[in-house]
Design a protein around this nucleic acid. Structure first.
Length: 174
DNA sequence: CAGCACTAATTCA
DNA sequence: TGAATTAGTGCTG
């Protein structure tokens, strides 16, 4: 049992400053792009986490891929990095894991995801799990939309607007 | 219990 | 037709 060290990093992408926190080699939280570094710092760390050490090159390979994503490259986060889902219920983990299998450019519905997780009628609960997704982008909760063609909600920084922008960014549509 | 990032079915213009 | 409303529904704190 190696003591898992907690660290965080914040770096600049084309869309703004992105940040994430790691416990050992597992990512336990990500922060979608936000205006400036100070804002990112405030949004990423809660009052009880202000003592966490900063590490500029933390998982630098991952940082490069994230930067690439916002540059428009085709990036796949489904196999790595490892994500720390400690503390989440079995249902939430099942849903988040299923969500992670949605590849770039694809779209799924809350209901379909519920089926994937083995709870056919739990679409609404899936929404609840998405709302608590600790690692947006790594687990692409923005690729889950309503069955009727609607967008659905998005509680991460940026809100539904960012959700739509990310989808459009992945969908080179006409 | 009440509250949701949902849905399919119903009801009204 | 299609927008708006109404039940069902499963998980969470």
């Amino acid at each position: 049992m190696t003591a898992s060290v907690t660290r965080y990093t914040i770096f600049k992408t084309r869309w703004g400053h992105f940040g994430f926190i790691c416990r050992g080699d597992s990512v336990c939280r990500t922060l979608l792009p936000i205006g400036d570094r100070a804002a990112a710092h405030r949004a990423l760390l809660t009052s009880s986490e202000l003592e966490i050490p900063y590490e500029k090159h933390l998982l630098r390979g991952l940082q490069q891929r994230i930067i690439g994503y916002f540059e428009g490259e085709t990036v796949d986060f489904s196999a790595d990095p490892a994500v720390d889902l400690t503390g989440f219920s079995v249902f939430q983990q099942a849903v988040l894991t299923a969500c992670r299998r949605i590849s770039l450019g694809q779209i799924r519905t809350y209901g379909q995801l519920a089926t994937d997780a083995g709870r056919i009628k739990a679409a609404r609960a899936v929404g609840g799990a998405m709302a608590r997704n600790p690692v947006p982008l790594i687990i692409p909760c923005h690729r889950v939309v309503q069955s009727g063609g609607g967008l659905g909600g998005f509680s991460a920084i940026g809100g539904p607007t960012l959700k739509q922008r990310m989808l459009r960014h992945e969908q080179p549509e006409a």
